[in-house]
Design a protein around this nucleic acid. Structure first.
Lengths: 124, 124
DNA sequence: TATTTATTTAAGCAAATGCTTAAATACAAA
DNA sequence: TTTGTATTTAAGCATTTGCTTAAATAAATA
């Protein structure tokens, strides 16, 4: 691992402190990393944004809006659901998806950024 | 595309409105999506967190702290740099990486969440 | 009951990701 | 100028990702 650089200058205390910080937060990195990787896909980011704006949408609507296949949308929804970011409500044969409260704290800043950037570019 | 579901119930107005919102924000989705996908990798999330805490670190330190190969670290740093999330400062043969101000607004909430969760789990 | 509609699941595949090892660069010091 | 140190780059490879198409479920309707 650390065979290829020797460093007389390395701050041993700093290294140790950093390792401890990572250890103490390992769970956070796992959880937050998962949500960010879910939101870090443009299609899924669009889906999340749309769910925030419209409260709930079905796979069919999303397929229409995003201009992509229903199975493609469905597979993104499955991932978001597995990550507890969205939830499903069944009404007859239609399934409505919506954002879960649980992780909304992380997502809301993203929506703010998106809307702010839109405001910023609108009056150029 | 939308061949497989017909929907008598579809709200045409809603579909149109959603498409327009996506169009208006297409640049945001691209830019934010890129940063989120960068931060959505556990190793890179750790690197970003460490840079926030320590101001600057070299690949060699990061390799030591993260317990991974220098080339592996270097390739993550390259991605972060290409995304304008971090910048490099050269001091002799050592290269110090640090967070760029430009995208800090997006990252800071992440660091807060990480630190808050640590606080929350500490007194259980 | 048979058929249509909305959705999911599965299999297949090309592209992207993230590591490994080895070679190349850049700077420092002997 | 030669040697050593820090870093990057490149090539190779296994895994993951995200689509496609086709088949399977589930509910509504004829």
């Amino acid at each position: 691992m650390s065979e290829s650089c020797i460093r007389l200058k390395a701050d041993i205390g700093q290294i140790k402190r950093c390792r401890e910080k990572l250890d103490a937060n390992s769970k956070s990195f796992l959880q937050l990393g998962e949500i960010l990787s879910l939101a870090g896909n443009e299609v899924r980011l669009r889906i999340l944004f749309l769910l925030e704006e419209e409260k709930e949408l079905c796979p069919c609507d999303l397929s229409d809006i995003l201009g992509m296949t229903i199975p493609a949308v469905s597979q993104h929804l499955r991932k978001l659901r597995a990550g507890n970011v969205i939830e499903a409500r069944k009404e007859g044969q239609i399934i409505f998806y919506s954002l879960r409260k649980q992780h909304l704290k992380i997502l809301i800043p993203f929506f703010k950024i998106i809307n702010q950037q839109n405001m910023a570019t609108r009056h150029v």
